[in-house]
Design a protein around this nucleic acid. Sequence first.
DNA 1: TGTACATCAGTGAACGCGCGTTCACTGATGTAC
DNA 2: TGTACATCAGTGAACGCGCGTTCACTGATGTAC
Lengths: 223, 223
Amino acid sequence: MTQPATSLSWVKTPKQARSRATLQRFQQAAVDLLAESSWDQISVDDIARSAGSSVGAFYTRFADKDALLRSVHESFLEESEATSNAVLSPERWEGCSIPEIIRETVTFTIQVYREREGLIRALTAHAATNEDFRERGLAQGRHIGELLRKLILARRKELLHPAPAVAAEFSARLIHGLLFARALSGDTGESGSIKLTDQQIRTELIHAVLAYLGVFSTQDWDS
Amino acid sequence: MTQPATSLSWVKTPKQARSRATLQRFQQAAVDLLAESSWDQISVDDIARSAGSSVGAFYTRFADKDALLRSVHESFLEESEATSNAVLSPERWEGCSIPEIIRETVTFTIQVYREREGLIRALTAHAATNEDFRERGLAQGRHIGELLRKLILARRKELLHPAPAVAAEFSARLIHGLLFARALSGDTGESGSIKLTDQQIRTELIHAVLAYLGVFSTQDWDS
DNA sequence: TGTACATCAGTGAACGCGCGTTCACTGATGTAC
DNA sequence: TGTACATCAGTGAACGCGCGTTCACTGATGTAC
């Protein structure tokens, strides 16, 4: 969301700095409103008001209401891809062992889900009945799984798991699945008989993945 | 969905067998349509037509459109609770070890998610912006977590994990999270570079949970 | 630097479609005697 | 068993509200000379 997706064809490219700012305000307004409501519940009027603009201005920037959501989705995916490329790049982890990689990946992923909980929830809800969105999300998941897979396969000697490729893919899914369900349910850890804090989730998730992979880690239970 | 929730106050109790059948047809129509579309995208007219009935008949049975969704949700939760109570009852597992319990729980849960994928997706999407639905879903998750926790705590000597209560709760979340994400993304295992079949998911998930719990299992990798 | 004109950006009222809900009416079922 | 009447169940056209989209218009920015 930090960069507008000005190159997208369904967004009418602004010619003046003023309207570029307006376009960003629309995108930010959408992100803000999506944290609370589903896309269907948000009206173009809501978006315009939240952006401090007008309905007419909206339609000079976007072909239709859907175009804004697509551009927000696009930005989210682009940012997410760039970030995961950076975090999971092979160079960054040269000389590091699997426990170190898993520890940071889990920590980082928890943080991302925390910060983007509202948006993730809204985009996912929309993807539930939108083939395009769903396919893009799947592709994104596959990409991240592949990055992690490469890191782990390069260290396959550390594993007890008999099928390193499957193990790597499944590890990514374990992490994503747990945090995804947590984000979607809006479980902030305050309600319920058993509360798991972010810190506990982190500890347990790291342990679970390492135990699953069959990595011998010193002090698996700490930090 | 097999039983209508006739006791619910927002559903107008039918006085004749004919209308009870109509009510069930409306509920079934909703379930069918929800497998493909979100609730907002389904019109009362769609529901009436799919049920082979009329809009007017709908409103003699339900207070409003939302009432039908609530009754479908209610039925789903009731059925889900009854089933998990039966599957995870302490009596059923007397004399059994944790690996046996986990193996069947995972197998069973995979099957449930498979059968109810469409409905789970739709109800979850709706819950994303509906506090009531979300809270009911959370309560459901907590309940199932508790059932599993009791089974595991009664066998805590089998565990290496230092905190059995946390371990039990987290195990439930691992299982749910992975299958939930899989159901929501609509990933049927046919697309993507790495495909995981139901069978593989089952094997890996059982192994992951047992490894996490720290249970010594003979032939963890088979069956 | 100033003026005229073209294009870009923005406004908000009006339009019209879709959908939830209502309602006057018809048909079916049950009950009283 | 048959008839009259009351209540339940169902029909589908009509209503009206909300919201996406359009459009005539005003204001701002940029450019030519």
